[in-house]
Simulated assay, not measured.
Amino acid sequence: MRRGREDPGWLRGEPPPRWALLAPAVALVVLVLAQRLTPGDVEIGFFLAGLPPVAAFAYGAAGTAFFAALVLLLLGVPGLGIAHARGTDLATVAAVGVLSVVIAWVRRRRDAQLVSVRTVAEAAQMAVLPPVPQRVGGVGCSGLYRAAQRGTLVGGDLYDVRAGPFGVRALVGDVQGHGLAAVATVAALLGAFREAVLDDTGLAAVAARLDRRLLVDATAASVDHPELFATAVLVEFPPGLDLVRIVSCGHPPALLLRGVAVEEVTVEPGPPLGLGLAGPAPPAVTELPVRPGDRLLLHTDGVTEARDKAGHFYQLAARVPVLARDPDGLVAAVWRDLAAFTAGGPPDDVALLLLTLPDPGVYRE
């Protein structure tokens, strides 16, 4: 599984790169040599006063204080011939150095807090949206998740694959809204799905359980959120049968990959979850014959509703035959292609789940 994690990078909690650590020392040596090679009536040594602020971006308080003291030494000792500093000049340089030390101390504390917050966020993702194994009950799995809200790892999309007494079941969904506000709904749906995999006989019953979960949560929600809903597609690989069952609750259609052919799976659409599926008309279950090696690509509308600068929608079904030949895998190839199409990534959460259908004999005893 590929996570939604992006490298936080320098100044976002990660250690500074090597060039940032070397820059102050290299600049110091270059300025000292340049002053030595410059005629005596031209002073460029005072540029050394800018080194402590530069060091503050990469070093802690102690390292920044070392550079500040070294600069004061070079400028304050006349015999070194670096600069002819007066008392007021040295006082200004010293003040800049002290301020740089304070900045370095504050930055280190902030970096430590960012690392702590990110660690908690990663733990939350592991609890809410753990990695999908490469195989579940004989079904090959590959997933990718990208949250739209920058700096977050979990948003409003979800997916899971579980094995139970009724076969292997998979869920891909998209809850109302996105970002951190939707995480509680995502957690509730995933919890209900994992229970349904073990307890509910039919796929329609699984959808009904998820629907009831949202109805109960909507009743308990504040007046600011009078209703909760989510689109979802449920897939079931029943044991001993050469078919896959699919229930769609207002969700974009899955893609069936059979060799080089790609087609949208036609199912009878049902209403989104949270609008009362448990009523007299249960959601329709579509049965699709399968063959060994067939693949199902499930996705959220963050993929198919992404647009380029000209306003054109991303044509997933048309791109998959080309991307399927990528050696890094189809899921990774789709994300790279989508990011290039939208010039940096779509504005909505994105979830992709590729299920490689097993030999139907896997389930037969």
Rank of each mutant, 00 (worst) to 15 (best):
V132W: 06
D224H: 08
D199K: 05
G164Y: 09
G173C: 10
V101H: 02
A49S: 14
V235A: 00
A127F: 06
G143V: 03
S100T: 04
G79M: 04
A284S: 15
G240Q: 01
L70C: 10
G345M: 00
L273G: 11
A192G: 14
L153C: 09
T219P: 00
G79P: 11
D224V: 07
V175D: 03
G250E: 13
G345A: 10
V29P: 02
D328H: 14
A61L: 11
R3K: 00
L99S: 10
P360V: 06
R107D: 08
A184P: 10
S248G: 10
V30S: 13
V262P: 12
A318R: 13
L129K: 00
A147K: 02
L234M: 11
V101F: 05
E14P: 08
F237A: 02
L203A: 06
L28C: 13
A182V: 06
W10R: 01
L51V: 14
Q315E: 15
P282D: 06
T92G: 15
A281V: 14
A261Y: 04
L228V: 10
E263D: 15
P133V: 03
P131A: 06
A318L: 14
A340Q: 13
V186A: 01
V77G: 03
V223E: 15
D111F: 02
Y159A: 05
W105N: 13
P8Y: 07
R3G: 15
G329P: 10
D326N: 15
A147P: 05
V93G: 04
G191V: 07
L153E: 13
A184I: 11
D308F: 00
V136K: 01
A220Y: 06
K309A: 15
L273R: 05
S222D: 14
V168G: 12
E365I: 00
W10H: 09
A343P: 02
A230W: 03
G191I: 04
V267C: 12
T342Y: 01
L70H: 05
G361H: 09
L80C: 01
G137S: 05
L203T: 09
G270P: 01
P292A: 13
P321R: 00
L74G: 08
V267H: 07
V29A: 15
G9P: 10
R212S: 11
E268D: 14
R5P: 01
Q113I: 12
E305I: 07
Y145G: 01
A148C: 12
L214P: 10
A332H: 02
L153S: 02
E227F: 06
